[in-house]
């Protein structure tokens, strides 16, 4: 556990809040989470009309006595859930120095989430991708899984360019079991394919969260002087005087953010923008509080 990605202060506040799944997830083990499979537990939820094919053992005869209608009793059942973390390790994630490096920030976030999920006795899996899926760690709830993830994170080097959309569809096909999906990426891809991939996950019943990891430079474009921008993902260089193009860049970038955010909202995908210059210790709790509030609501 002595990984650089598990910082004590981060973990302390994250643990205090825990991760409460807002949706009911399917679990293999009984835990704090509610199963989507209603019917066989002690906590009654509702009645529904009997339809041929239903097990007659679940008919509520008391209700039949009152209403002379066959009804089935449904119950909620707390389950374990599977959390899939999809980490973008493309070269564009390499941007930023020190703590503000996007990939490092994303790795930290991955580690924290993994730890929290496992500590809740839920299972967590990791997918590392760039243009293609590079690493796949199937979900597991054992504490060894955290170690495995942390080791994996430490070994990840950025490579290739982001092409997240098709990849999400590919991952969706392999994770049929519904759960939580955290996509951690700068999402420098075409918006439509990306949304398409996210919607594919969502279609399978996953609760999808996009941690849009961005550096403040990318958000604010605060440069001046004569700069030569060398493409991290593609061999391209652009020489310009950035202060002169800043308004245009911000307009284009904000339009992109707006389009992405709107697309996510429309598909009920949780969109979380992370600015790597803001410490995770402040950002993550805020997110979890918001998530919890939404779950209770």
């Amino acid at each position: 556990m002595a990984s650089q990605y598990l910082k004590a202060d981060v973990l302390a506040r994250a643990e205090a809040l825990g991760i409460k799944a807002r949706q009911i997830v399917e679990g293999l083990r009984v835990g704090d989470h509610k199963s989507p499979f209603r019917g066989f537990s002690v906590e009654f939820v509702q009645h529904r009309e009997y339809v041929p094919g239903d097990d007659i053992r679940h008919i509520d005869w008391k209700s039949y006595g009152r209403s002379e209608r066959y009804t089935i009793k449904q119950y909620e059942q707390e389950t374990n859930f599977a959390c899939h973390i999809l980490l973008d390790a493309s070269k564009s994630m390499q941007y930023g120095e020190g703590d503000s490096n996007k990939l490092e920030y994303a790795k930290l976030l991955t580690a924290v989430i993994s730890y929290l999920v496992v500590r809740q006795r839920d299972s967590v899996g990791l997918y590392v991708f760039d243009q293609k899926l590079r690493i796949k760690l199937p979900a597991s709830s054992s504490l060894v899984q955290v170690n495995t993830i942390l080791r994996t994170l430490e070994e990840i080097e950025p490579d290739e360019k982001t092409e997240i959309g098709p990849l999400l569809e590919q991952i969706a096909e392999t994770t049929r079991r519904r759960g939580l999906v955290f996509v951690i990426s700068d999402a420098f891809d075409e918006v439509e394919p990306l949304l398409k991939g996210l919607r594919a996950l969502r279609y399978l019943g996953h609760e999808v969260t996009l941690f849009h990891t961005l550096h403040s430079d990318e958000l604010n474009f605060p440069f001046s002087g004569n700069l030569k921008f060398d493409g991290l993902e593609i061999p391209e260089e652009i020489k310009t005087r950035p202060h002169l193009i800043r308004p245009n860049y911000l307009r284009i970038f904000n339009a992109y953010l707006e389009e992405l955010q709107k697309g996510c909202n429309a598909s009920r995908i949780d969109y979380v923008q992370l600015e790597t210059t803001k410490p995770l210790v402040e950002v993550l709790p805020q997110y979890l509080v918001r998530r919890l509030q939404m779950g209770r609501g």
């Binding site: 994630m93 700068d186 060398d230 493409g231 860049y249």
Partner: peptide
């Protein structure tokens, strides 16, 4: 020109 690595080339271009 001072070189700077940059990921968001699409928007810059």
């Amino acid at each position: 020109y001072k070189p700077i690595p940059w990921g968001a080339m699409k928007f810059l271009r």
